[in-house]
Amino acid sequence: MSQAAFVDALARSVRRWCAGATGIRAAAQLSGGASQETWSFVIERPDGDIAAILRRSPPGYGSVSGRAAGLDVEAELMRLAYEAGVPSPQVLHVLTEADALGAGFVMRRVDGETIPRKILRDDEFADARPKLARQIGTILAGLHGIDSAALPPLRTISSTEEIGLLRDDYRSMGWPRPVFELALRWLSQNDPGVSKAVTLVHGDFRHGNLIIGADGVRAVLDWELAHRGDPMEDLGWICVNSWRFGEIDKPVGGLGSREDMFAGYEAAGGTVDPDRVKFWEVMGTLRWGIMCCGMMQRFRQGPDHSMERAMIGRRSSETEIDLLRLLAPRS
């Protein structure tokens, strides 16, 4: 489909479901590979324009990975999160066959920043920063509190299964990493087993997927890796050192302390298990390291022969030093 035909189809779709809409303008692709695209556009209406975002898989493309929840499920989760008071973009429309645009959804655009270095350093966010760790705790408690019965079909994944998946991913690359083996061994020996609470887990709650403004977190994005599991997984993942962007003494995304996040979580009705959080932080550190190795594989084998991919491959050693700091501190 040419860009002009795509824009026409999007305008036709919008006129069907958006009351008063006369058309669209300023359609621009923000990101995307072959299987998934993000577009920004403006819905024109006499009562006031709406800034909108489309996420879609073009017709003929399925899910990007075996772990992906699917765009329909993502839309449903965003709707549930919005209703539960979790900062989320309002979902305006889920694509149907009549739209002829593939699978996906349209949401309201939320203004704000996602680039970690700006959020961690710019003056604009100075007032928000000290409050963000606690707010993240509050938000996570809110999304973990979403009624299980209301959830769309999601895979359930336990810590034991996750260890196995990571081990398979790592071994399939055929490159020995004694530190990763040490981490896998530690994870198996410290596997807390099935959690008493099994809830919705966002699965990728970190910088890049949070829109932040001077007033705090405005939206949680990207539910692609959502699943059912141990809620402590999300608390551990946000503490992975790779998401601190240099602010290594502030474990929660380089913003604040675990204690602040835990306090926000418990004040909002959640129960924290710090040992499980630590377990998931180790798991998350290893997971990001293996993902970096995967980038190197795709650089070498795939069509995307980019410098960025290649250089991300060289970031796996960052997770090795972080794993050693977690599991074998020198002092």
Binding site: N241, R244, E247, R314, R315, E318, I321, D322, R330
Partner: peptide, 11 residues
């Protein structure tokens, strides 16, 4: 790989 990585500098 990353001599400016904060964990490395700290160590």
């Amino acid at each position: 790989d990353q001599p400016n990585y904060a964990s490395y500098r700290r160590e």
